[in-house]
């Protein structure tokens, strides 16, 4: 939870407070970018862009909104712009290399690959479904918070989330039936 006093100081022009505020949120910003873009370097770029935008636009934040939904709105917008500009691609990035190089017992490897599999399945969802799932599960947002972050009506958020879970369930179920995991 971000201290409201810290936000106030930052808005009043206290640069120390503003930088401290950015430090509080950088992991949250990165996490959303990472799961939306499915690529480590792209996520770093997007998170940087988002933090700089937050730094320059801090005065446009109004207290009637939750700070964290305001932050997530900025980062999801940047990510959606990014993946609209790019061809969709599923990347094999450093995380997989890390798993391979470690001396894990078999069960740990399986758990890791399961998470990897879910991440890839999320990457196959349409952009808004993906955003809803990421905010719901990686930021623990409520329906209302998701609606605020994405500027969507509450019912649309629910229908996106429900459809996304059905799609994920199908994707992952097919995967399991393929025998890789179960």
């Amino acid at each position: 939870m971000i201290e409201p006093a810290l936000i106030k100081s930052a808005q009043a022009g206290d640069r120390e407070a503003l930088v401290a505020l950015l430090r509080e949120i950088e992991n949250h910003v990165y996490r959303t970018a990472y799961y939306l873009l499915n690529h480590e370097q792209d996520a770093m770029d997007a998170a940087q862009e988002a933090l700089i935008r937050i730094y320059t636009k801090i005065n446009t934040y109004e207290e009637k909104a939750q700070f964290r939904t305001w932050v997530q709105k900025i980062v999801t917008n940047i990510c959606i712009d990014k993946f609209r500009r790019k061809r969709p691609s599923v990347s094999i990035d450093e995380h997989e290399l890390v798993f391979e190089s470690r001396d894990n017992v078999e069960t740990e490897v399986l758990t890791a690959y399961a998470a990897e599999e879910i991440r890839e399945a999320i990457g196959k969802l349409p952009e808004h479904h993906r955003s809803v799932v990421v905010l719901r599960y990686l930021q623990d947002f409520s329906y209302n918070e998701i609606a605020d972050s994405l500027d969507l009506p509450l019912n649309t958020v629910k229908s996106y989330l429900f459809r996304a879970r059905q799609q994920l369930q199908t994707l992952l179920h097919d995967y399991q039936k393929g025998g890789v995991r179960g």
């Binding site: 998470a115 879910i118 992952l172």
Partner: peptide, 21 residues
């Protein structure tokens, strides 16, 4: 599925993005 999604790793950047910018 919902439980699995809740357990997704809370990834963090490899170095501080704020330091970088």
């Amino acid at each position: 599925l919902s439980d699995d999604l809740s357990l997704l790793p809370r990834v963090e950047p490899k170095f501080s993005i704020v330091d970088a910018i």
